[in-house]
Design a protein around this nucleic acid. Structure first.
Lengths: 136, 136
DNA sequence: GCAATTCTTTTAATTAATTAGAAGATAGTA
DNA sequence: TACTATCTTCTAATTAATTAAAAGAATTGC
């Protein structure tokens, strides 16, 4: 046995998913262009194809022929990938305790007053939701 | 060029750091034991040594001779590693917007009423802190 | 039709991560 | 001293991730 291979996208794969979540389907050439201008990542055309095909093999992407070239589009949704990666880190760093993770963010990040108010509202809403759920 | 090598601990390295944050310094044999009972990860003795030495090379661990064996202890603090990995995911998934990350957690996780209240208190405290800072 | 352009496939090289056997060193014990 | 137990170091194998050149296939413009 050796490297297991994560169920989540790697660094570069995530970069590519971000490109395709923003706009898709795209040709290889277009993905390459966007990686360069957007993420400052200059890759050879063949490198981009290789990654895209690997991602297709992992079922991260759809692939459809368009003339002689391929069009790629995401097969996984942003919220699912985000959720998966978040819960992965949640379990690995905070033992699966989400409020511990939130506290860490509040403690270590700069969040301005407006945003704090937004969060407070969200929390209030959550509390209400929970009360409703228990009164069914 | 190829794999860059993350500045943050890998999956297994983090597991080992967790063991050593809980109790250190430890002998290889003890780390191995704790990986097995704690994380359900059974590794050969030599495998554990290899990883520990790699981590020592990455400056994640201290190493001191004790008789014929080595004692290992963390050189990096839990809060720094946690902070680093959090800000890494923060930038990669939420474009560096911490409140977006908090919102995601609130939306997708089960947090009970007591914990929500704790978070509300923390937010109130944060708001006050910010007011004080601006009134210097 | 032929050349140029543009794609994909094939091949492969490098580095990181994970795992572990085999060999070598050292210390204790009978 | 010789045997044994216990450590480390050396070596190495496997898989994932990243990157890209070279070779092949197809389409288009003269």
């Amino acid at each position: 046995m050796a490297r297991p291979g994560s169920e989540y996208p790697t660094e570069l794969e995530l970069e590519i998913l971000k490109v395709l979540w923003e706009e898709s389907p795209l040709l290889v050439r277009e993905v390459r262009q966007k990686l360069e201008t957007g993420a400052g990542r200059t890759l050879a055309h063949s490198s981009v194809i290789t990654i895209l095909n690997i991602m297709h093999g992992k079922d991260f992407l759809h692939r459809q022929k368009e003339g002689k070239s391929f069009l790629f589009s995401p097969k996984v949704e942003k919220k699912d990938v985000t959720g998966g990666m978040m819960s992965d880190l949640l379990s690995r760093l905070f033992n699966g305790d989400p409020s511990a993770m939130v506290m860490n963010l509040l403690d270590t990040s700069d969040i301005d007053a407006d945003e704090l108010n937004e969060l407070r509202k969200l929390i209030n809403r959550k509390v209400k939701e929970q009360k409703n759920e228990s009164n069914l």
